[in-house]
Simulated assay, not measured.
Amino acid sequence: MTEIALDTIDRRILAALQEDAHATMEQLSARVGLSPSPCARRVRQLEAAGVIRRYVAVLDQDKVGLPISVFASIKLERQREEELDRFAKAIMRWPEIVECYLMTGQRDYLLRIVVKDLPAYEAFLKRTLTRLEGVASIESSFALGQVKHAQGLPVGE
Rank of each mutant, 00 (worst) to 15 (best):
R107N: 12
S69R: 13
V43D: 03
R112P: 01
V58C: 08
Y101G: 04
E83W: 08
V64R: 15
L125E: 09
H22E: 12
R107L: 13
V70K: 00
W94R: 09
I74V: 15
A136D: 08
Q45N: 13
M1H: 09
E99F: 10
E99N: 14
S69L: 11
M1T: 12
T104V: 13
A136S: 06
A150V: 05
F87Q: 02
G134M: 08
A88W: 08
A123Q: 14
L28W: 00
R54M: 05
E3W: 01
Q27R: 15
P67S: 12
M25G: 08
A123I: 03
Y109V: 06
T104N: 09
E83T: 10
R42D: 05
A49M: 06
V155M: 05
S73K: 08
A23G: 07
K89I: 07
A150S: 14
E81H: 14
Q18E: 10
A5V: 15
L153R: 08
S137Q: 11
R11I: 01
A40M: 12
C100K: 06
E81M: 03
A143P: 01
K126H: 14
E157P: 04
V114L: 09
A48W: 03
S140R: 03
R80V: 09
G145D: 12
A150T: 12
I68N: 03
L59D: 06
L46Y: 03
Y55I: 08
P36K: 15
V135M: 08
L132A: 12
R107I: 06
C100S: 15
Y121W: 03
R42Q: 07
L76K: 04
A5W: 12
A23K: 14
Q61K: 06
T104W: 05
E99S: 10
V56L: 15
G145C: 09
M25K: 07
R53V: 14
K75D: 07
R93P: 04
L110R: 13
L46S: 07
P154T: 03
E83A: 11
A15V: 11
K126I: 04
S73V: 04
L76D: 00
V155S: 00
S73W: 07
R107D: 15
R53C: 09
L110G: 06
S29I: 04
A150N: 13
E96V: 00
R12D: 10
S35D: 15
E3D: 11
L34E: 12
R31F: 04
L111I: 02
D117L: 02
E83D: 13
L66Y: 06
Q146Y: 07
P38D: 15
L84S: 03
C39M: 05
H22I: 05
G152P: 02
R107P: 01
A30P: 01
